[in-house]
Design a protein around this nucleic acid. Structure first.
Lengths: 249, 249
DNA sequence: CAATCACATATTGGATCCAATGTACATGTG
DNA sequence: CACATGTACATTGGATCCAATATGTGATTG
């Protein structure tokens, strides 16, 4: 059984400068293992775990993912690690170079700008498609989501709640692939949001935006709702990118 | 062996600009080979080949991709096949089930509607970002592209030219990730366009659309260009989806 | 002394083998 | 006869081994 022999083998923690701290990576990954549970294949399990750890910021950008190290930590061979890393590369979470290996994609102002521009385009379109189909129940769920966010103090859950709120707005759009693409980019933006939250604290204005958007959507006023959503995303993106640029420079 | 080795590839490979005469030949050779698309790894080679074959319609939707069979055809082991299939799955070109295998994603009206909705949202946004930066040279290149499409009779090249034309329109948007996403969906839509072309023949109206969009973009009239592009994509999508639905039902 | 080359080492890419899983078909039982 | 079960086969998942490639270090040579 591939998960049985987790502990024991990799205890010797040698930390060379400029490389991954094996002990720390091992520790965080083990925590993630608990959270994710065990799916049908080792590859899927690794993919879930690594993605979760990356978007949660547990593995910082720039970290090299050595196949052998990851394999030992999870108690599997290098092969499922390779396949999982391939998948993560296609999802843009790691950068990969043949014969050199994979590193966790670094957080950058450029990527953030990209992500927010894409989100703005897709989410506004999805909202427009979704509004005619929104039910009162959807609106109620949105209000509950906003209230939950008001009460939430844990930054890591805040990202999840924010994502869920946005997705409820678009839930009635007829395009499942579009929704999947949006969710993927919302997950990616979680990394950035959490980064900013940790440094600047939470942003009260976002909640006002959320309320206004939901109200407009509830009235079926697609034009107003889309304009509000556009500036909601654009403002957040602009603030984030500006802050990241000061950090980079 | 599945590919020829590069001559002299073992050397240090540092390219010093200026006087070093020796390494220049090697360097230029390497660049040429790279532009032509020399695959660095078997996995990359398989991914390219399979994607090209799927997009071109050489492998029809629904076809099961047996790892062993593909491996034999390409003269490699199953492992690079597995990794390539993983990548294709992440790109949405094949559907994958654990322990069952991969099948080429089927063409469906539903997926087409999804693809066109996503493209409309993303391409309109990209055009708006790009227009302020468009140069006269870009416009000229667009005109050349339109002319090339007028003359082209080969359907498979027509898709490439159409894609290139669209991408020139968006080339000046500062969001590389957005452009990459658009190109990915343009490639996916090639499958559908080719399908339709083969059945219905080519669509003359699209060329009029292209000219009108390019003219508006050349004048810097972003509003008009975006409206035209939106209806260009929407019309084509609607016609395609309607046609696919009659085929399915 | 600088540049280059040769060699050692670490890491990934690919091949082959074995195990696990799913499917099809035959067989037994109500 | 319908349905459950067991078994054989096909196919994929994972482990281990070997080969190819990149990188770092020290010797050599001009």
């Amino acid at each position: 059984m591939w998960m049985a022999k987790m502990p024991g083998s990799g205890a010797g923690g040698e930390d060379k400068p400029g490389e991954v701290d094996r002990g720390e990576l091992e520790h965080t990954l083990r925590r993630v293992v608990q959270r994710v549970g065990r799916p049908r294949t080792a590859t899927a399990f690794l993919e879930e775990s690594l993605r979760s750890a990356i978007v949660a910021g547990d593995i910082p950008g720039g970290t090299a993912l050595r196949q052998e190290a990851v394999a030992e930590i999870f108690g599997v061979s290098r092969m499922p690690v390779r396949e999982a890393i391939r998948q993560l590369e296609a999802q843009g979470l790691v950068e990969f170079q043949p014969h050199k290996g994979a590193v966790v994609a670094a957080i950058s102002a450029r990527d953030a700008a990209d992500n927010w521009a894409i989100r703005k385009a897709l989410e506004c379109a999805a909202l427009e498609y979704s509004i005619p189909g929104l039910t009162e129940q959807d609106i109620m769920r949105g209000e509950e989501g906003i209230a939950e966010m008001d009460d939430e103090t844990d930054f890591s859950r805040l990202g999840l709640l924010n994502r869920r709120f946005h997705m409820t707005l678009y839930a009635r759009a007829q395009f499942p692939g579009m929704l999947q693409l949006i969710e993927k980019h919302l997950i990616a933006s979680d990394r950035y949001i959490r980064f900013q939250l940790a440094a600047l604290g939470r942003d009260k204005m976002a909640q006002d935006d959320h309320r206004a958007i939901l109200t407009a959507a509830g009235k079926g006023d697609a034009g107003r709702a889309c304009r509000l959503l556009a500036s909601h995303i654009e403002d957040a993106g602009r603030r984030l990118v500006a802050w990241l640029k000061t950090r980079e420079g």
